[in-house]
Amino acid sequence: MNVLIVYAHPEPKSLNGSLKDFALKRLQDAGHAVQVSDLYAMQWKASLDANDSIERQANERFFPSRESKHAFENGLQSADIAREQGKLMWADAVILQFPLWWFSMPAILKGWVERVYAYGLAYGVGEHSDARWGERYGEGKFAGKRAMLMVTTGGWESHYSPRGINGPMDDVLFPIQHGILYYPGFDVLPPFVVYRTSRIDEENYGAVRDALGQRLDDLWTTKPIPFRQQNGGAYAIPALTLRDDLVPDRVGFAAHVE
């Protein structure tokens, strides 16, 4: 299988750097082909702007989604964007690896998503009618591919528990897992999360490494998070609200998981 690791940490000697190196070797030793997009090492341009298109449309102002659609359809994207899109289409599984900074991914990784997820590739796909609302949330160009987050955080696991002060980790990661990954069609696996990173030393690093190794070994057998499909009948279209008879006592993020 083909695996793409999109890695976002500025220090190669960090815990993240060590886990990335371990993941690369573990996957390769298992016979998988692996590519790594090391965003800091690549000096990835994080900001989406008019320079992402080789030849702009003759508009008076920059309209990001229209420019993205025009560039994607006509082969006018900047070379760095096109290369990353090629890796995405090549991959059978994608791993996004990052430290949790201010309850989200580092800006450089968010910029990778914003620039690489072009109109016509990750969104703006499929018909919009009274029966369907595009190919998304379980459908899309990345359907059939798997995705997983590898996340580190300085907080305690209890801080991200159901009653923890930071909110449940599943809720913190919901915009990434449900929005960035499930939206364009990925089957999203439960995340691999390392807590209390300041307490990870040589003595307990082995346990973290072994747990990650098992998750990588199980990359193609782990059951995905059972997010509800948008066009599967659970949602009223075009309002895209969950049907009144489905889990009527449940609201928020949890309502969108079967």
Rank of each mutant, 00 (worst) to 15 (best):
F63D: 13
M150E: 07
N59T: 11
V257D: 08
R209L: 11
A234K: 11
R250V: 15
P226H: 09
L4E: 01
G75W: 11
V113D: 05
V125F: 04
L242R: 12
N16Q: 07
M89Q: 15
G164E: 08
G31K: 03
A79Y: 09
Q97E: 03
Q230E: 15
K25N: 12
P106N: 08
P224R: 04
F22V: 07
P99N: 06
D244T: 14
W101T: 01
T222N: 05
E114G: 06
G120I: 06
T222C: 03
D201P: 08
L149D: 04
R243Q: 14
A46V: 01
Q177G: 10
A41H: 11
L181M: 12
G120Q: 09
L39Y: 02
K223M: 13
Q43R: 14
Q35N: 12
Q43G: 10
P226V: 08
I54N: 15
S158T: 15
H256K: 12
N16D: 08
P162N: 13
G138I: 06
M105R: 07
H32P: 04
D187E: 15
F72L: 10
F63M: 13
S37C: 05
N16S: 02
R215C: 09
R26Y: 07
D187S: 12
M1K: 10
G111P: 01
K145P: 01
Q28T: 11
F186Y: 06
G75V: 11
L39N: 08
W220L: 14
S161R: 10
K145A: 02
D217T: 09
G155R: 04
S47M: 15
R243C: 10
Q43W: 03
P10G: 03
Y123H: 12
P162M: 11
G134N: 00
A234F: 12
G75Q: 13
S158G: 11
T221V: 10
I81P: 05
V247G: 10
L96E: 05
L246C: 13
K45P: 06
G185M: 02
A143F: 12
G185E: 08
Q214P: 02
R83S: 11
K45S: 12
K223S: 15
E60Y: 12
A91C: 02
V193R: 00
Q229M: 15
I108C: 00
L27K: 04
G155W: 06
S78C: 13
